[in-house]
Design a protein around this nucleic acid. Structure first.
Length: 282
DNA sequence: CTTTGGGCCTGGACGC
DNA sequence: TGCGTCCAGGCCCAAA
């Protein structure tokens, strides 16, 4: 489900609903998701204040007042909701794996059907050394990400540009939807070897990545299936997709005859579906 | 080193 | 109605 815009939206929702709340009780309802829950999670969280929130790549960092950081990854189907209900009166639903109750009377609910999500808890030193974070590429919305930086990251990479964009060491936070959409907006064919793009093409691509991510954040992310804001609302960027999930349809940039062109095409690259317009993406 | 493929899970869509 | 197959927003690891 969640790529950068969805994770950013969830993080902002947490910020506006439980900033400064103190944990009163934790109900961990199974031993693991993709990885085991942290040891003694309940004891270590109890009494802690959720002091600030941050997104890095597709991870949410929650800074606690004891200096530790609660890290959450939503995997494919992870969903966080904050309900105005005491933890003891909340009736867990199927796939609710972690409940955190606060002194504000609210309850944080982490639901994850497929259990590809992750929860970690560690101090800043361990975080800085952790293999999941050391090799993360630049944040695409920051100034540290631009055409020259992306061009350098593509240098020597023969892998298709679409696949390269999914590599979190190249740029962090971009997933399958926004990789397809950014390439579409840049008019670039997804099968081009990453190293074959000119400076100008990569410059354009770096701008379309920023643009599509920023637009998607404004729209509150894309809801295909599981994804919801912490309030339960859906995102609506899915209505702005140019090519993703639009096999056989006319792309919005193209007035060609789809009977002749077949409309939006789908191919498989490294096991993932890539949607693109064969007419305008070269 | 780079790149690909399989595995981790559940459930929905589709074909028969 | 049921069964089998394929597919899905991500990430990690083994193998080539």
């Amino acid at each position: 489900m969640p790529e950068l815009p969805e994770v950013e939206t969830v993080m902002r929702g947490l910020e506006s609903s439980i900033l400064g709340a103190r944990v009163t009780k934790v109900n961990q309802r199974r031993a693991n998701l993709r990885i085991p829950f942290p040891e003694n999670l309940s004891q270590r969280l109890s009494g802690a204040v959720f002091q600030s929130f941050e997104r890095r790549a597709k991870y949410i960092f929650i800074h606690l007042d004891d200096g530790n950081i609660l890290i959450i990854h939503l995997g494919m189907s992870g969903r966080i909701s904050v309900v105005t209900e005491l933890i003891d009166s909340y009736k867990p639903e199927k796939h609710d794996h972690l409940l955190i109750g606060f002194d504000s009377g609210q309850t944080f609910v982490f639901n994850d059907t497929r259990r590809f999500g992750m929860v970690m808890l560690m101090g800043p030193d361990d975080l800085a050394r952790h293999p999941a974070f050391v090799s993360l590429g630049p944040e695409p919305l920051g100034n540290e990400f631009n055409g020259p930086v992306l061009h350098a990251a593509f240098a020597g990479k023969k892998t298709p540009v679409k696949t390269a964009l999914l590599d979190q060491r190249v740029v962090s936070g971009v997933g399958n939807i926004y990789a397809c959409e950014a390439l579409f907006m840049a008019g670039l064919h997804p099968e081009r070897p990453a190293c074959s793009l000119s400076i100008d093409e990569v410059d354009c691509l770096s701008r379309t990545i920023k643009k599509v991510l920023a637009s998607a954040i404004k729209a509150g992310g894309s809801t295909l299936k599981d994804y919801r804001h912490v309030s339960g609302d859906t995102g609506y960027f899915q209505y702005d997709f140019g090519v993703y999930d639009k096999k056989g349809m006319a792309c919005p940039g193209c007035d060609c005859d789809i009977i002749k062109t077949g409309g939006v095409a789908v191919i498989r690259q490294s096991g993932r579906s890539t949607f693109f317009c064969p007419v305008i993406q070269k």
